[in-house]
Design a protein around this nucleic acid. Sequence first.
RNA 1: GCUCUGGUGGUGGAAUCGGUAGACACGCAGGACUUAAAAUCCUGUGAUCAUUGCGAUCGUGCGGGUUCAAGUCCCGCCCGGAGUACCA
Length: 933
Amino acid sequence: MEYNFSDIESKWQKAWKNSQTYKVDIDRNKAKYYVLDMFPYPSGAGLHVGHPLGYIASDIYSRYKRLCGFNVLHPMGYDAYGLPAEQYAIQTGQHPAVTTKENINRYREQLDKIGFCYDWSREVRTCEPIYYKWTQWAFIQMFNHYYDTALDKAMSISDLIAQFEKNGTEGVSAASSVELKFSAEEWNSKEETEKLSVLMNYRIAYKADAMVNWCPALGTVLANDEVSEGLSVRGGYPVEQKVMSQWCLRVSAYAGRLLEGLERIDWTDSLKEAQRNWIGRSEGAELSFKIKNQETELIVFTTRADTIHGVTFMVLAPESDYVQIVTTEEQKNAVDAYLDQVKRRTERERMTDKKVSGVFSGSYAINPVTGDEIPIYISDYVLAGYGTGAIMAVPAHDSRDYAFAKHFNLPIIPVIEGVDVSEQSMDAKDGIMCNSTFLNGLSVKEAIVCAKQYIKEKGLGRVKVNYRLRDAIFSRQRYWGEPFPVYYKNGVPTMLPEDKLPLLLPEIDNYLPTENGEPPLGHATKWAWDEKNACVVENTKIDQISVFPLELNTMPGFAGSSAYFLRYMDPNNEEALVDRQVNDYWQNVDLYLGGTEHATGHLIYSRMWNKFLYDLGIICKDEPFQKLINQGMIQGRSNFVYRVKGTNQYVSVGLKDQYDVQPIHVNVNIVSNEVLDIDAFRAWMPEYKDAEFILEDGKYICGWAVEKMSKSMFNVVNPDDIVAKYGADTLRLYEMFLGPLEQSKPWDTNGIDGVHRFLKKFWGLFFKGEEFCVSEENPTAEELKTLHKTIKKITWDIENFSFNTSVSAFMICVNELSAMKCNKKEILSALIVLLASYAPHVCEELWSLLGNKTSVFDASFPICNEEFLKETAVKYPISFNGKVRFTLEMPADLNKTEIEEMALANEQTIKQLDGKSPKKIIVVPGKIVNIVF
RNA sequence: GCUCUGGUGGUGGAAUCGGUAGACACGCAGGACUUAAAAUCCUGUGAUCAUUGCGAUCGUGCGGGUUCAAGUCCCGCCCGGAGUACCA
């Protein structure tokens, strides 16, 4: 009987839906396993063939885990807030909620066709009030907590207030934006509003004037991970630096724990490394330099305290607060001119053009160790946001300082023996110290330790760990995002009462900023908070007595995606983000699949967010994603035809060098194995109607290139088309067969026929002509062997995410069984269960044809009989490459003659065992014998 | 610059702990079936030389090394991809 995949697939997709086969509930008799995909942003373009790669892999894994007896949570949802829907709304006036809903429906339709085992009853959408209520709730919690650096956890802000009332800042250990010092009397005598503004310095969600990445084209600020090389990641628009009052999250307070936590999770080294670099821990010292004739001390951060004797000048960032203090009357004009010049340069110019620039401030600092007077400069090579925004310059051992010193003709003093600094600096932490009084003769490594010790003892500064990781800017000047649960009472940001959440996103009729430059929410007419009645009211009622304006910013994209994995556990709970008992069962994600592009964004924020909730006791695990696998990107594979310039003639790729040609993208869907469907090409566009072709071997062969998958390159392949032509099971197997999961690779349908042929052969094992024909006989040893080696291989492959090689193993298995004409029920049943995770529809169909009343996914995964494989290994050696190998342990201490003797002795044994003469014998002492027949 | 990754036939890729390199698949060539085509099946397919049957030599980006044995380990380079960057 023919393998009719489209009937089979629609039949089982319906059956699964009707019987809720994939619905999952807490079952305390079973171990849980949580498999999660990074949820998609539903874009207008729909899914292309690259998107499902990770979903297929996680689907296989979930089904496998279920067959192994786990209670598997495998949900899916949508990251529904985002820029594209809003940009579309600006252009068309279509409400983002409408387009988002349409896109979600389209995504769902596409996903369903591939036959995933998601429990859709747990779906979340970040733009739904029932969901974003908890995003707003978490924000309020962050506002109401500070980070205690001694306890290393988030604590209630009321604890901090109690400490201030009792002892002021004395003994307080709290992460803060600025280090403040005040006594209990000073605190208690402060006005209420003043107290609130002091507390902002400590809150985990806080509002502050921050240097932000402002993107004029998008009309919003962006987080650091949303900017790359001075351009916005979305859209590629220029980004400038600007000071604005913004909500921020004190992510930096969690830097140490984010770093430490990496040790306990099972991620790839490269991803952990990317996070380590982004967090950027560096150990060093803060050093105070006295300024000549002034009270103020200049504090710098350095990792090279050992080079203190080589300091010949100081440099301040242009934005540094020190600039005003150290600039002298005589230098004021020069400094102002320089600051003005720096301000006019965009971030991008500053990065691309690394020309040395700077200005002398007029002041001198005193080197605390040598007592030398050294000039203080201002230059934009020093960043305001890192360390203290000021550095001690050691031109002999830092290439940037070196370039600066050469440019301004400043002295360069080497402090490491035998270093020539006439051409370049010596940056390596290597060598023996010199010119350094008490450090002379020490190695650099010893000197770093010794110098830090010296600094501490003499009270010149303190040992300090610095992080590169900065707080996240949490405001966006956009419409399509979560509204902040915040109103402004006489200018003071105040949280809405928790029981009034969610604060619903208002309707507006214009998605652009307002005339006076406010974010789009400024257009909302009903957007004010009536404190007394605790409800949203018309703007016109604002009286600043009991009705106040609401926040006009919205939250960024990562807000909704930071805790969604928790919500899947308990998606309809209206009392809590997640019930604690429910969380105790599902705990955290065991396996998370997604792209590397989230390494420094989502994967940092969600870890931080999760740790915060853990500190509050809401959840039981502080790391959200135990194991993480990155699937590679599927790139587009474009095809080209070559038009002879100035004609309507097209030449096949092999002959194109003989003509003057112009390559033209051609729709990949009318090309098969590089051969162009000429009729389809003529019909494709009117301009090709009368095209003529210069063929090779009677065919038109196209050229190809790997490019991004995009409409303009005509290389987008839609999964629906593949499903229609070959079936979902073929698509699933083929995507896995394409190559290693983690590797990026171009989509190319050249091999899909082979996979489809395999499924037909597999189907064919169960039929004799038109008849379904399966034998109840006991299988032979040879048949069992084929089965068990396949079980062994598939089990290993799934557990190691080596899905591509397991498809090969299935092909070999089916080839062998069909060569043996095996139709034994025992073998075939096991094979169905084995393959079911990969090709669920066809397996479910065959499983039911075998007379089973329940789903194949209620069966158990077959177990490999290792003993049997070992026993048969001599007679029927295991081998996946089609050749025969016999292995035998050999004693370790043999010389060459003994080895040869051993080999000859074994040759006899092998002959007796197998009745054949070996072709070749390879013998290795201490290892194994390889005998090839 | 730094960090991470990768480099194997005409193509995608396999080789899981240092043990026959090229599994499996595509493509190609030849054959069977067919009036013909499609579909299906069979055979061959790293290179060079030898082909009368055997075979022989080379071969995993390049150059060295360790080992009985290296695609795999070590040292030094070359090339591609990704991330990140005046981070003191």
